[in-house]
Amino acid sequence: MSARYLPVGWNASKLVYDGVLLAIVASYIAVFLWVAPHFQHVTLPLDAYSARMGAFGTCAFFLLTAILCIGPAARLDRRFLPLLYNRRHFGVLTCAVALTHANAAFEWYFSYSPLDPFVALLSGNTSFRQISGFPFEVFGIFGLVVLVLLAATSHDFWLRFLTPPVWKSLHMGLYAGYLAVVLHVALGALQAAHNPLLAVVMTLCVLMVGVLHLAAGRRPARPGDTIDGWIVAGRADSIAEGRAIAVPVPGAEPVAIFRHDGKLSAVTNLCAHQNGPLSEGAVIDGCITCPWHGYQYRLADGCAPPPYTEKLVTFRLKFTDGMVLLDPSPNPPGTYVEPLRVA
């Protein structure tokens, strides 16, 4: 939660998270550059720049794949949620790995000529009308721009400045970046490869991202019936103590209905921080707690406890014939609504 901005709000979870990430990246690069060459069947080894391009380029692609898999994996199995917690650091590290790949290519292929290196980069290959030989560099540049943009705006300052919906829309650009990276590899390294292994691994990665998203996308429940404009949310006993259900609202974001101390409260399903799914959170210390970053809100009015200032939209609830009904008209953020006591 935020009352002021820090470069990084370190805690033990983030330190462990970043330590594991760095260890994975370091082992990948070390094995690729210093162990694997002993098993190559080549006349002479690759030059240092080309080897670095391969190591950091493939590593960035796999990291990006992992980032895109974490979200749906956490939706399908809550035990993956801790991997989602510090995903922004994951993204920044991926950006740094991708920049190292790009820097090696830029220095090796486009420097040392009479042309400005950026001019050489953009004019070196202009065969846009053919597939074989297509300037795959443009997809790499686009992917890199996306990664840098997302890394640069990953801090909470930008989240607040841009507002969560805009920030989240911007960061959905990662999918476009991933597509560009896939095309970059497919039209570049894969065309030059004499061994199909990279193509096989890459195809598996893309399939994994697609299948996980499809599987996670099938989970939302169907919209309920309505009675006099109120949405039937279900029976109160269908909500576990300290937990919530997400109630679909036609044409709007779902609403999270929490049960705590035998009372029900309804707030928007979108966390005010990064629009995380609050219905997948829990009540801790009497507060709704977001599963993504632990942002907390009071049940009755949707306000973060002082000194924090975030507020959620709240909703009215009522009982009819043992069923919980939800008024889909949202109250202004922070509006107090008396929790509905379960009979």
């Binding site: 094995v31 690729f32 080549v42």
Partner: peptide, 22 residues
């Protein structure tokens, strides 16, 4: 994840195309 990443690095790094003898 660490084992998988290291194994993939070993596999991809060891199947490099022969750059020739220049």
């Amino acid at each position: 994840a660490m084992v998988l990443f290291a194994a993939v690095a070993l596999a991809l790094g060891s199947v490099a195309s022969d750059p020739g003898g220049g």
